[in-house]
Design a protein around this nucleic acid. Structure first.
Lengths: 188, 188
DNA sequence: ACCTGAACACCGTTCAAGT
DNA sequence: ACCTGAACACCGTTCAAGT
């Protein structure tokens, strides 16, 4: 007669889904596999998430928040100049994208979902980058500069994770050279 | 007794798959849907392609070739300086990515496939960009410069197609400003 | 030599029945 | 109030049977 307490939770389900995505790709993120990780049967998931699309959307939203924290909490930046801090934030972005490439692709390329993270979440995530861009290029051109930096960082990280850089040579050096060039150009 | 002639072809199948991908997304690229477009039943496709993964890979390969042609045949560039030609080629890339966003994501982000386009195909596609990069930044730094330009162009186009630019303001102006900054910085 | 229907394993999702 | 097995429609893939 006593109603059973929940044997899993929305948070656990989203975490399991994010793990499966990163470990084995989007096609491995099945309701049965997620259910298996959290220890229930597939139909039970529908008590916690509407359907698979919404679960994927929730994984993307969580990734946006994680990314925001990753680039918002870069340590020891108080003493540096704008360009050095921008370099640190962009590199934190790259590190995040290398750690969670498939979640990053879900957020930025959106292949496999029609979902967009909420405007508020996106705004919060890029806030630190936007304020540095304003410092670098002036408030008038802050948005443009932030977009250019994000485009470069995401594009580079995506190509890197996707294996697009296969002509040898030093990938780290290419990252730094491109970033320096962009920062220099935006500051001018 | 006479063996039946092929009622469809590998080329037609790939074209149908590319159409479905762009029109309705990767999850709409099903064997049944492709078979329907080319006018056969799903099992017949296996006479022409090994399986769905290989079909998706073929779509990606074809997209790489198309992209190579798109950025290799930019008209009326003979009289321009390096920077102007680079601007034209990068903009041709953006135009291609806006026309075929999902195929572009398949090639660069590779979410939904483990496939990589062959090194030769990729090399051919980026050849025009590489030679311009050499002209701009010197042969020593050509590869770095080409990578930075590709990363920026793909990243910008991906974010644009994915709807990441939703804070208002002029997206075309942002594209130009970022591209100018990068070219200026790479030339220095 | 290619095409087909039937069949199988799998997936997302619903729902009545359990506790 | 949540969980489950059974069921349904759909998907990728195989294969024996047609022409």
């Amino acid at each position: 007669m006593s109603p059973t307490p929940a044997r899993t939770s929305r948070a656990a389900i989203i975490a399991a889904a994010a793990e499966l995505l990163e470990a084995h790709g989007l096609e491995a993120l099945t309701m049965a596999a997620v259910a298996d990780v959290v220890g229930v049967r597939a139909p039970s998931l529908y008590k916690h998430v509407a359907d698979r699309q919404q679960l994927i959307a929730a994984v993307a939203d969580e990734a946006v928040r994680d990314l925001g924290m990753a680039i918002g909490n870069v340590p020891g930046m108080t003493d540096d100049g704008v360009q050095a801090r921008l370099r640190s934030v962009a590199t934190a972005f790259r590190t995040f994208a290398r750690t969670r490439p498939r979640a990053t692709a879900l957020v930025f390329a959106g292949l496999g979902t029609e979902h967009q993270p909420s405007v508020d979440a996106a705004r919060a995530a890029v806030a630190p980058l936007l304020s540095l861009a304003a410092e670098l290029a002036g408030p008038e051109r802050a948005l443009e500069a932030a977009r250019a930096l994000t485009a470069y960082a995401y594009g580079f990280a995506a190509m890197e994770s996707g294996g697009a850089f296969r002509f040898g040579s030093d990938v780290d050096a290419a990252w730094s050279a491109g970033l320096e060039a962009l920062i220099r150009g935006l500051a001018a």
